[in-house]
Nucleic acid binder design. Sequence first.
DNA 1: AACGACACCTGGAGGC
DNA 2: TGCCTCCAGGTGTCGT
Length: 276
Amino acid sequence: MPELPEVEQAARTLGAQISGATFDGTVRVAWSRTIHEVPSDVLGAQLAGLSVQGWQRRAKWIVLPLSNGMTFVAHLRMTGRFAVLPRDNADDAQQRVAFGLTDGREVRFIDQRKFGRIRLLSAPELATLDADHGPEPFDPSLTPATWYTTLQSTSRVIKTVLLDQSRIAGIGNIYADESLHRVSVHPLKPANTLSKKKATELLAAIRAVLRQAIDNGGSTLRDYRDSYGAKGTQQDNFQAYGRTDQPCGRCGTAIEKITVGQRGTHFCPYCQKAPR
DNA sequence: AACGACACCTGGAGGC
DNA sequence: TGCCTCCAGGTGTCGT
């Protein structure tokens, strides 16, 4: 589900519900890999008495700073979502972990495919997580010049580079396709063959696509919900992703689907000319 | 070092 | 209806 806009929305709606709340140390685990097999009593002991200081997002990670300097981080992967509910509410069949709060509620992590992960990080571990990722798309330090340099540094195809979290953080399969369609760049074009002008346009397109998606609460294809359970609406604005055989909004040519780096990839064969 | 292939999981959709 | 195959917002790991 979740790319930058969805994670941003999930983090915001989780933070809105539990900023200031305190973990009571209760941790109920239905799928231990979600918490990296850390024993529930160990994790509970670490969390007990800590309060949530706010919320952030780094790449596709939800980041909740805690009152002792540690950080609660979660990655939703494909199907993860949070819910904050009274303790006596029935468990969801796909619920993997629940963290008790001192106010009688629970922070629940629901995740059909079980790929999502939650951890408690020390400051150095958080620094490592940060260092493992490239710049945030909206970071002012990511300039047309630095972006062009990044693209020049590899001959991998552009779609794959957009998905490489160490080059730029937060873009996933949907918004990669949408960004490339927006600037009429073929997904198989080698990154180092984009002109400086095209690279600049692509950066602007990435920002525009992500901004619109954030403003629309992200995209819900099937599973994604924010931390209140609400769906996003950005899927109604897709120009390429999931529109196989439907007309391109610019030229009317049928959108094609190919596989790039094992990911379904949608593009307009007329607007986005194949590289030679 | 960098890159591609595969693993990790469940369940919905579509073909027969 | 039932079975089977394919596919999905992601990324960690392993082999080349």
